[in-house]
């Protein structure tokens, strides 16, 4: 996993609510695909016109926002399918952080597995940041600092955000959770032995 400490840059507004992972990456793009190289297909149903050219209406196509590392989003961002390809796609587009009022549960977990930081802020504040960004496209910068758990708005205010302590640590260090869990192999084996004695039906029925 790619560690995350802090990011500073342009924040691109995409404030529509309920952006689902099908919108982020259509499933057809994930059949047989590798996790790299998905970026060009991100939001493709909205980003491109029928002839394949850029849709000028789509916010992330605007020159000021094309290289934004931060996405400002609406509520329930990343709802729907569990496809981790949605996270790989956003990272492939150069994003490192999504700021939204709320996230789909599975997407939120998937972000932390890859080093894309999901930050929850109140909707009104996200709208204010979006207005500041729109007032000065390409210039208004946002900083997201995971260690300090702060978002620095374009007008210089430091706004605190909450993040699960365990996930924060894993993200700062880019921890390998499998290696961590494998250190508990004896505990897992002991649990399994106890459970097999207590619930033989849960094991023998498939063994």
């Amino acid at each position: 996993m790619q560690p995350f400490r802090t990011v500073t840059g342009i924040a691109a507004p995409l404030l529509r609510a309920n952006i689902d992972t099908d919108m982020i990456i259509p499933v057809q793009r994930l059949v047989g695909a590798s996790r790299d190289g998905l970026g060009p297909y991100g939001f493709e149903r909205f980003r491109y016109l029928a002839d394949g050219s850029d849709n000028p209406e789509f916010p992330l196509n605007r020159k000021a926002f094309r290289t934004a590392p931060i996405l400002l989003a609406g509520e329930n961002f990343g709802c729907g399918s569990s496809r981790e390809g949605a996270v790989w796609t956003l990272m492939g587009m150069g994003l490192r952080c999504v700021i939204a009022p709320s996230f789909g549960d599975i997407f939120h977990n998937n972000c932390f597995q890859n080093g894309l930081l999901p930050v929850r802020l109140p909707e009104a504040l996200i709208r204010r940041i979006a207005e500041a960004v729109e007032a000065s496209p390409g210039n208004a910068r946002v900083t997201v600092d995971l260690e300090r758990q702060e978002v620095i708005t374009p007008w210089g205010e430091a706004v605190p955000f909450a993040v699960d302590a365990r996930k924060k640590q894993a993200m700062l260090e880019g921890l390998d959770e499998i290696a961590l869990t494998k250190q508990r192999a004896e505990e897992i084996a002991a649990w399994q032995a106890r459970d097999r004695a207590a619930r033989p039906w849960a094991w023998d029925s498939v063994s």
Binding site: R83, N110, Q113, I188
Partner: peptide
Amino acid sequence: FGVGASELTHVLATQTLMQR
């Protein structure tokens, strides 16, 4: 419950999953 690719890999490798 549904999980993403990374969590699924964790389960296949350890038969466990860290969950809140």
